[in-house]
Simulated scan of single mutants.
Amino acid sequence: MIKRLLILLLAIQIGALLALAYALYRWWHPAWRAASGAPWPALACLAVAALAVLLVRLLINANNFRLSRRGRGATPAAHALDRRGAARLFAHEFFSSMLTSSYYMLRPLGMRLQPRARGLPVLLIHGYACNSGYWLPMSKLLARAGISHYGVDLEPPGAPIDDFVPQVHAAVERLCEATGSTQVIVLAHSMGGLVARAYLRRHGAARIARVITLGTPHHGTALAGFGPGSNAVQMRRDSEWLASLAATEAYLQRQLFSSIYSVHDNIVAPQESSDLPGARNLVFGAVGHVALGRHPEIMRCALAEIKTATPV
Rank of each mutant, 00 (worst) to 15 (best):
residue 5 L to G: 12
residue 6 L to A: 09
residue 6 L to K: 07
residue 14 I to V: 13
residue 15 G to H: 04
residue 17 L to N: 11
residue 17 L to K: 07
residue 18 L to P: 08
residue 22 Y to P: 00
residue 26 R to Y: 11
residue 28 W to V: 10
residue 30 P to C: 02
residue 35 A to H: 07
residue 38 A to R: 06
residue 40 W to T: 12
residue 41 P to Y: 04
residue 42 A to W: 14
residue 43 L to V: 08
residue 44 A to C: 09
residue 45 C to V: 05
residue 47 A to I: 15
residue 47 A to T: 14
residue 55 L to W: 13
residue 56 V to L: 13
residue 58 L to G: 08
residue 58 L to K: 06
residue 70 R to Q: 15
residue 74 A to F: 11
residue 78 A to L: 12
residue 92 H to C: 13
residue 94 F to Y: 14
residue 97 S to I: 07
residue 102 S to L: 13
residue 105 M to G: 00
residue 110 G to K: 07
residue 117 A to G: 04
residue 121 P to K: 05
residue 134 Y to A: 03
residue 139 S to Q: 15
residue 142 L to Y: 12
residue 145 A to D: 13
residue 152 V to C: 04
residue 156 P to N: 06
residue 163 D to Q: 12
residue 170 A to L: 10
residue 170 A to C: 06
residue 172 V to N: 08
residue 176 C to T: 11
residue 178 A to H: 08
residue 181 S to R: 15
residue 181 S to Y: 10
residue 181 S to H: 14
residue 182 T to R: 15
residue 183 Q to Y: 01
residue 189 H to K: 03
residue 205 A to C: 09
residue 216 T to N: 04
residue 217 P to S: 04
residue 221 T to G: 02
residue 223 L to K: 03
residue 225 G to W: 12
residue 236 R to K: 15
residue 238 D to P: 09
residue 238 D to M: 12
residue 239 S to W: 04
residue 242 L to M: 03
residue 246 A to F: 07
residue 257 F to L: 02
residue 258 S to K: 07
residue 258 S to R: 06
residue 260 I to T: 01
residue 275 D to K: 13
residue 286 A to N: 15
residue 291 A to P: 00
residue 292 L to M: 06
residue 294 R to I: 12
residue 294 R to Y: 07
residue 298 I to R: 00
residue 301 C to A: 14
residue 304 A to T: 12
residue 304 A to C: 07
residue 308 T to W: 11
